[in-house]
Design a binder for these strands. Structure first.
Lengths: 113, 113
DNA sequence: ATAATATTTCGATAATCATCGAAATATGAA
DNA sequence: TTCATATTTCGATGATTATCGAAATATTAT
């Protein structure tokens, strides 16, 4: 993961509506939700929603597919995992910390879709 | 983790210099680095560096301690792990995805310090 | 074709953020 | 105390971002 693209992903997530959108989609899974349902669920008007979905997509965090009149959005789990990995990369230089500290509970997307 | 504070943490990380600072500190471990060394390593002038360190601290991502004239900064690994957990929480609602998809490589801070 | 529904683009406005020189503050050394 | 070093605060400037009404585009149903 390039640093620039990591910053873009983090910036995309660093906004209340977009973070809520992303988390809802993570919980929804690979099937995703269509734009209208996301907007209804989170109370975001269409123009604003579209802007945010575009930001998340541009950052590479979402995949979308058209189904008739509807556009379905789902997380790009692979990209998200790459971001998480980038943030935690080489923690403590693999030194004393790896012995002194226990791993935390899983904090990666389980989904590879 | 409250959503507001997650947004604040993500916003703090969503800036090139700050992400570089944070990653350098993650790799350095709990002992941390003093401000001057961070600035020298990353090529950031003092005023700007101080601004960014304050942002990261305000967001709860860094701990600091004074040692003589020096101020040492280190990641708050616990807070960071909470953020990673929040992002991946309840992935795919614990449904089909948990069976269909394998966990990825560890992507959490190993350090609890 | 016409109408209805879903989504995106445009455009203007208001708000927030990054940078860094200069000055201020804090601590240790001579 | 006086000086040198480390870090932070102040203040001004330029740049980026969020919001959303109105209009445009796209797809399906009648």
């Amino acid at each position: 993961m390039k640093s620039k693209s990591a910053v873009e992903k983090l910036a995309a997530l660093a906004q209340e509506s977009r973070l809520a959108i992303f988390r809802a989609l993570v919980q929804e899974g690979p099937a995703g939700l269509c734009a209208g349902d996301i907007g209804a669920r989170l109370g975001v008007v269409p123009a604003t929603l579209s802007f945010h979905l575009k930001e998340l997509s541009r950052a590479g965090l979402l995949k979308s597919r058209q189904e008739g009149r509807f556009v379905y959005y789902a997380p790009d789990f692979k990209a998200m995992n790459a971001l998480l990995g980038y943030l935690t990369e080489n923690c403590c230089s693999g030194g004393v910390c790896d012995d002194a500290c226990a791993p935390t509970a899983a904090s990666a997307m389980k989904c590879k879709a």
